[in-house]
């Protein structure tokens, strides 16, 4: 399935090209920063009406990863919703789609800074969860054997910047999974200070490709507009 398999803190991991993390020994799929309802929030706040298809796009991608891995547990690693109102304003179709994805699986919503409270959708709401050797939470702390999201890391190789997993011996940060999400370059001090001397990046795309994070990286910024 074009994923990249590696051992992280004694746990077998596969980075999927979509940006999801799969733990085969625990039959667990983890996705971070879905930001569902982002277009709704932007319309509400600014009057700018972006194409309202990002929820559908993100859930279809998740559906495809679930079909491939058939996990028993799914962890949404925080910022699953762009804000609490966006979580409330999901359409009936979206709710049905989510319920369909949840059926027969354990579903964990980890709280993020964008969605810091319970949501009236199925599943369990937690601040963090332990799976095997690993702790899953939204924002990285000083703890080791930790998997988090929040920063939307991106990495640039041969001129092209792609959403990327970043990890070293103690910490892993997942790329943002949602359709309408930007990224933060792997060279930025915010991300750099979280890793030790020899971090790795796994680029998403058609295949998940691992590269060592080299020391100097040109500034990587998305070519586009901010919201």
């Amino acid at each position: 399935m074009n994923g990249y398999s590696f051992i992280f803190c004694e746990t077998q991991c596969t980075a999927l090209p979509s940006g999801a993390l799969y733990l085969p020994d625990h039959e667990t799929l983890c996705v971070s920063d879905l930001h569902l309802g982002k277009s709704d929030r932007i319309a509400r706040r600014s009057g700018v009406m972006l194409p309202p298809y990002e929820v559908q796009e993100t859930l279809e991608k998740l559906q495809s990863d679930i079909n491939q891995t058939n996990p028993k547990t799914i962890i949404c690693l925080g910022d699953s919703f762009d804000d609490m109102d966006a979580a409330q304003s999901l359409t009936d179709d979206t709710r049905l789609h989510l319920i369909g994805l949840q059926a027969g699986r354990k579903w964990i919503w980890i709280e993020g800074n964008h969605d810091p409270g319970p949501i009236d959708l199925g599943g369990t709401h937690l601040m963090q969860i332990q799976i095997g050797t690993l702790t899953f939470r939204h924002i990285a702390t000083d703890a080791s054997a930790e998997v988090s999201g929040h920063y939307h890391p991106k990495h640039r190789v041969t001129g092209r910047s792609r959403p990327s997993f970043l990890y070293d011996q103690t910490r892993m940060i997942l790329p943002a999974y949602g359709a309408y999400t930007g990224g933060l370059g792997s060279h930025t001090p915010e991300l750099r200070r979280l890793f030790n001397a020899h971090p790795m990046a796994i680029l998403t795309g058609k295949r998940a490709i691992a590269v060592p994070l080299t020391k100097s990286q040109p500034p990587a910024r998305p070519h586009g507009r901010s919201y």
């Binding site: 298809y53 586009g224 507009r225 901010s226």
Partner: peptide, 23 residues
């Protein structure tokens, strides 16, 4: 707007792709 969090920035190319696919 540019100074604020860069994670919030995403490429307008994504909008083009989404629109082409769904509308």
């Amino acid at each position: 707007a540019r100074k604020s969090g860069r994670q919030a920035t995403f490429s307008s190319d994504i909008l083009y792709d989404t629109l082409s696919k769904y509308d």
